[in-house]
Simulated scan of single mutants.
Amino acid sequence: MTRRLLFIGSGILGMMSASAAAKAGAFSEIIATEQAFGSIGASHYSGGVHFPYGRQARTRSLTRKSAVALAAMAGSDVNGWYRPLALRVAAGPDEAINPAQFTEPLDAARPDIGSLAPNFSDDTRFWNIGGAHVADVPALIAQLQRELVAKIRVAHGLRCIRLREKGDAAEAEFATGEIITADAVILAAGPWIVQPPFRELAETFSIRIKKVVALHLDRTSTPDDPLIFMPGVDAFLLPQPGVSRWLFSYTSADWDVRPETLACGLSRADLRAGRAVLEQFCPELGRDLTFGRVFCDAYSPTGPPVVARLMSKSRIIPAGAANGSGYRFSAQLAREAVALAAEDITVPRG
């Protein structure tokens, strides 16, 4: 029997899910659509950082399972899209660190914090921890598309304008006039999920969009420098030796932004907010945050991402709202979304 699976959105979650679906073999036809050519959404701006951490049991589980799957995908070719990293956890003098929130053991034995060591406050505490890596997310998406070229159809330039349940199928209509009917639809639209025609689904799951900012620190980094994670302020410093700088990602407080309005770049407020966070640990480095990148991502109200049916028999499955951690959770979220889509939900005809 022919079973068709449709993906709306071909970022990291969409393509990881398409790969999982091709391997599972539950669908005879797989179509992945993307409204642009290539990845222009959150995946394009992603730092690709994977660290073994989660505030909730659900996010820790996603992190652990995805880490195993991503390492297996990378195999021995660690010079491609995947690069293992040493990781240091940093905390202020009065900040409590909960070891249970990490999926790997913390080790306080004389951590080497690399070339930025002289810039940290003397009262900053550090731990060693394993299990971190960084990925070139657009390169991974391109690799998946090459690997799947004979197994799935990837359709660029298709903007969905209507998505609905229709009898025992789901139907997506695109701005080109094309209509695709499928047995199941995995909606991996990233921050566009709050816009028509998906807005009702987003409201049902209370999904909101928040700005994501990563600033470029104008200090040279080396291949031996570690990733430095600051869980208390939800920020990290990522060495980028290939471009002779660091990437500083911090948590923005700007909610309900729209992806199409962020093309104007960083604001003065973005720089000011990032400098204030970094200067809690490195008082002299804030002035070296002068440029960077800004976009947005979908966030769930409870923290863990959304992978669910709207109703028990629904054929439309929103997948995402990964709170800026789409890559870190992608492998396991993809498996869960495909497993849900593959369930037999045939409605008896009356």
Score class of each variant (00 low, 15 high):
residue 346 T to R: 12
residue 247 L to Y: 00
residue 167 G to Q: 00
residue 301 P to S: 05
residue 265 G to Y: 01
residue 108 A to S: 11
residue 271 L to S: 06
residue 2 T to S: 15
residue 194 V to H: 03
residue 90 A to H: 13
residue 77 D to F: 06
residue 248 F to I: 06
residue 10 S to C: 09
residue 61 S to N: 01
residue 260 E to K: 02
residue 145 Q to N: 09
residue 157 G to P: 13
residue 178 E to T: 15
residue 92 G to N: 03
residue 125 R to A: 09
residue 104 E to R: 15
residue 101 Q to T: 13
residue 297 D to I: 01
residue 295 F to C: 01
residue 127 W to G: 14
residue 3 R to Y: 04
residue 174 F to T: 11
residue 342 A to G: 13
residue 321 A to C: 07
residue 100 A to K: 14
residue 285 L to R: 08
residue 330 S to R: 04
residue 334 A to Y: 05
residue 178 E to R: 15
residue 274 G to V: 01
residue 302 T to Y: 05
residue 241 P to V: 12
residue 240 Q to V: 14
residue 109 A to H: 12
residue 272 R to D: 13
residue 44 H to R: 12
residue 96 A to Y: 10
residue 124 T to D: 04
residue 25 G to R: 00
residue 311 M to Q: 09
residue 289 L to A: 09
residue 117 A to R: 06
residue 286 G to P: 03
residue 194 V to K: 08
residue 250 Y to W: 00
residue 176 T to E: 07
residue 76 S to P: 00
residue 180 I to N: 08
residue 135 A to C: 10
residue 152 I to Y: 02
residue 304 P to K: 03
residue 79 N to C: 05
residue 232 G to L: 11
residue 161 I to K: 10
residue 147 E to M: 07
residue 273 A to L: 00
residue 35 Q to D: 10
residue 187 L to A: 08
residue 270 D to G: 05
residue 164 R to Q: 09
residue 340 L to P: 03
residue 35 Q to H: 14
residue 264 C to E: 12
residue 113 I to H: 08
residue 88 R to W: 04
residue 67 A to L: 13
residue 85 L to R: 05
residue 69 A to K: 13
residue 87 L to V: 10
residue 250 Y to P: 11
residue 345 I to T: 11
residue 25 G to Q: 00
residue 248 F to M: 07
residue 78 V to L: 14
residue 261 T to S: 15
residue 216 H to Y: 05
residue 211 K to R: 04
residue 16 M to W: 02
residue 289 L to H: 05
residue 168 D to Y: 06
residue 233 V to E: 15
residue 54 G to E: 09
residue 113 I to F: 12
residue 341 A to T: 04
residue 154 V to N: 05
residue 9 G to A: 13
residue 265 G to I: 09
residue 135 A to F: 01
residue 92 G to M: 08
residue 329 F to I: 06
residue 240 Q to N: 14
residue 78 V to T: 14
residue 30 I to A: 04
residue 11 G to L: 00
residue 137 V to N: 01
residue 46 S to Y: 01
residue 222 T to M: 12
residue 306 V to S: 02
residue 144 L to R: 11
residue 61 S to F: 07
residue 341 A to D: 00
residue 92 G to F: 03
residue 151 K to C: 03
residue 46 S to V: 09
residue 103 T to N: 04
residue 189 A to M: 12
residue 313 K to V: 05
residue 8 I to R: 00
residue 314 S to Y: 03
residue 326 G to L: 10
residue 264 C to R: 09
residue 342 A to K: 08
residue 68 V to G: 02
